[in-house]
């Protein structure tokens, strides 16, 4: 017993020390940011990001710091990385739109009715879509069980079951839509200007040029090269060194 208490205390102290160490780094980074020492802030945020790669707040801060350093490609990349998990985060969306305004690529939203109707879907994360689907399934199963047990008004339960069924189909479609979006590898250009080649070699012909902050989808990769596709359908190969993969 005594042994366990000792181990527990040591672990607790160690954890507290590590946490306080990270908090200290965070405070230092915030201090540098406030004093416009963005290079120093970036270095500290990156240290923390290496330890906590999926912390949304840290990714947000990294995006801001890159923006202040005029690394617009990196800024957009980090904002998109965070938005992947929290698409409804208004602060992230605001900063992303502000950064996008400063680059050359214009992403014009579609004016189709379907886009207007389903535009809100982009505010749903993959996790939210999944949980909604699971909750609807749970309600449907409970309703079925109640129908079987003949506990409540059968008509009411049947109506509820129909509504649940339709909602479940819809939520499943939304989940699939979000899952495809989630699984799609994306990236952002981080160099000021990058030639896009017809294949994974600089000896091949240049198809077009992309600039810092351009967003693209990744179709495939070969070594240190990826085949990217722009929103206008242009495809080509670019080296990984000039890209930020989300």
């Amino acid at each position: 017993m005594k042994y366990f208490v000792t181990v527990f205390l040591i672990l607790y102290m160690l954890t507290s020390y590590i946490i306080s160490d990270n908090q200290k780094l965070l405070e230092q980074a915030s201090y540098h940011y406030k004093n416009s020492q963005f290079e120093e802030a970036l270095s500290l945020y990156e240290t923390l990001h290496d330890k906590f790669p999926n912390n949304i707040d840290l990714i947000f801060n990294l995006g801001n710091t890159h923006f202040k350093l005029n690394n617009l490609g990196f800024a957009i990349g980090y904002y998109l990385k965070a938005i992947k998990w929290e698409p409804s985060n208004s602060e992230l969306r605001y900063n992303l739109s502000l950064t996008r305004n400063l680059i050359k690529q214009t992403i014009e939203p579609s004016d189709s009715i379907l886009y207007s109707l389903l535009g809100w879907l982009r505010f749903l994360s993959i996790n939210t879509a999944f949980n909604i689907m699971m909750i609807l399934l749970l309600i449907g199963l409970v309703t079925l069980r109640l129908i079987y047990l003949k506990k409540f008004n059968r008509e009411l339960l049947t109506n509820m079951l129909i509504i649940c069924g339709i909602s479940l189909v819809l939520s499943f479609s939304i989940f699939i839509h979000r899952y495809i979006d989630y699984s799609q590898e994306k990236g952002v250009v981080v160099t000021k200007k990058q030639a896009v080649y017809s294949g994974p070699s600089e000896n091949l012909s240049v198809l077009f040029y992309i600039h810092e902050g351009y967003e693209f989808k990744i179709n495939k990769s070969a070594g240190n090269w990826v085949e990217l596709e722009l929103s206008n359908g242009f495809k080509g190969w670019a080296p990984l060194s000039s890209l930020f993969l989300i």
Binding site: D57, T65, F130
Partner: peptide
């Protein structure tokens, strides 16, 4: 217009996880 300010207080335990790693899911 300027960026929304950085997060000064961060809970390092809050890590983004996909649904198949979430306890609730």
């Amino acid at each position: 217009k300027d960026l929304r300010y950085i997060k000064e207080s961060i809970s390092f335990d809050d890590q983004a996880k996909p649904f198949y790693k979430h306890i609730f899911s």
